[in-house]
């Protein structure tokens, strides 16, 4: 079995984000462990942390499946707003982009033979979800999960 991926050092508020390069399916483990470590720093509860890691796994897998050469970048940082803390993660690739964003955000829509739950499901799991996609240029998705 694949050994557990080692997470990069979690970041305190204000520190530069942790960068995880995605070049293949094995990097999903690193994305998940990085998000889990950062969730702990931000004081997320178990359910909030599980949702974050799951959504991150969906979005990272989208990069592996759909981005050019399955490559992209994930930036993970601690978010702070007043007295609450959270984890913010930015998933970006310079792949083909999403032509019909409305369709892609609909349950069951898939151009790749999957269940088509990755994007709409991740949005439901997260406190904040922003997507920006330009056909031919790439896709950036920012998610954030707060500790309360």
């Amino acid at each position: 079995m694949t050994p557990l991926a080692t997470a990069a050092e979690p970041r305190a508020p204000g520190e530069a984000p942790t960068l995880v390069q995605i070049t293949g399916e094995a990097d999903l483990l690193r994305v998940r462990s990085t998000l889990r470590a950062q969730a702990q720093v931000a004081g997320l509860g178990l359910t909030a942390a599980t949702k974050l890691v799951t959504a991150g796994s969906e979005l990272a897998r989208n990069i592996v499946r759909y981005a050019t050469h399955g490559q992209g970048v994930v930036l993970v940082e601690t978010a702070e707003e007043g007295s609450r803390r959270g984890v913010r993660a930015r998933f970006s690739d310079d792949g083909p982009g999403i032509v019909d964003l409305g369709a892609a955000m609909t349950d069951g829509y898939s151009s790749g033979g999957s269940m088509g739950l990755g994007l709409p499901g991740s949005r439901r799991l997260m406190d904040e979800f922003e997507i920006d996609s330009v056909p031919g240029r790439g896709t950036t998705i920012v998610i954030c999960q707060w500790n309360r």
Binding site: L46, T47, A49, T50, K51, T54, E58, D107, M115, L117, P120, G121, S122, R124, L125
Partner: peptide, 15 residues
Amino acid sequence: IQPAVAITLVELGVP
């Protein structure tokens, strides 16, 4: 199935 996983799967919408 862990409770947090159950909650997540339902919200994710996995049939």
